[in-house]
Simulated scan of single mutants.
Amino acid sequence: MSDTAITANWEDLIRFYAEAGVDSALSDAPIDRFAEAATLAAAQPKRTAQPDNSMRNATPAQAGGMQSQARSDAPQANRTQQKPQAAASVPAQAAIAPEVLLEDARKLARSAASLDDLQQAMAGFDGCRLKFTAKNICFADGTADAELMVIGDTPGRDDDLEGIPFSGPAGQMLNRILAAINLTREQAYLANTLPWRPPGNRPATPLELDLCRPFLDRQIELVAPKVIVALGDPAAKALTGSREPIYKLRGNWHSLTTAGEQSVAIMPSLHPDYLLRTPAQKRFAWEDWLMVKMRLAENAV
């Protein structure tokens, strides 16, 4: 095998690890944990049972009393030892019904009078467990009063590390798209349907989306954009309420009515990550963004 082929294989392996969320190496050499456990077990000294002489000199009445006391104490001791273990194995939020967590999210979102308040409310919300596995909260980037709001699905690895939506190669692709319609990143407002990255970049669960949706709705109300571009299948479905795939939703205008009765035009389109993997689809995305450019121009008149 040539040196070029070996280098390509290593690059593919590193790229696979990066996309899977691996960001550190534990060891340079493999470790046989089964052999290690067997070695430790063999090294443990064997214990021999010691006779209990506590009742050797006791009278029959005393022995009976001691045995009865031992039987009554044993279950209590077991219960005392088991309770802390059971409590420690259950997460604190697991006992709270999803309906209660969702109502808490709604109250926190409604109480936010500004985007800064909303960011603090999201950071303090413990109902979504993704908060405890992500490295950073990816709240938003760009200008708060922008006419264009761009919403992706979930933060990627670069977003999680930086705490900024659309970072890394996907963000650079989005920057070039915005430049093509005569806009800069600072002239738009960028966000995601979820502020925290799911472990291993897995898809978000319906419960995770539901728990974070009140914050997203409030975020849209506070920004009050004229146009929203929903990038990717999950974001498009969440914002349009449709079950159609992205290739059927894209290229067509949809509308969203907020809790404050504000109507916003939505254009579903292809996510920059997808365009990086399939460059041939860029022509479809370009059609979507040209329609966005025309709609923004109409609003400016």
Rank of each mutant, 00 (worst) to 15 (best):
Q81D: 14
A97P: 05
F125A: 04
G163A: 06
Q76V: 15
I151R: 00
K131L: 08
E147H: 13
Q172Y: 12
A109S: 13
T154A: 15
D126K: 06
C138G: 03
K131Q: 10
R185H: 02
K135H: 09
A144I: 05
L115V: 08
D104R: 12
I137N: 01
L108I: 10
K135E: 11
I96N: 08
A77N: 14
S111M: 09
A94N: 00
E147Q: 05
I151K: 00
D158S: 08
C128H: 10
E186T: 05
G152S: 02
I181Q: 08
F132H: 04
M173P: 02
Q85K: 15
M173L: 12
M149R: 00
G142C: 08
F166V: 10
G163H: 09
E147L: 11
A170G: 09
P75V: 12
L102Q: 06
L101R: 00
T184Q: 01
E103L: 11
A112F: 06
L115Y: 13
P155F: 14
A112H: 01
G168L: 13
V150K: 00
Q172P: 02
D158N: 05
Q85R: 14
Q119C: 13
A112Y: 14
S114M: 06
R176F: 15
D153Y: 07
A77C: 02
P155T: 06
L183M: 11
S167D: 01
L108V: 06
G127W: 15
A134N: 09
Q187S: 09
A109W: 11
L178Y: 12
T154K: 00
A121G: 13
P165A: 11
A88Q: 13
L102N: 03
M122L: 13
N136Y: 04
Q120T: 07
T184A: 10
Q76S: 07
A112S: 12
R129D: 13
F125L: 03
K83M: 09
G142F: 10
I137K: 04
A180T: 00
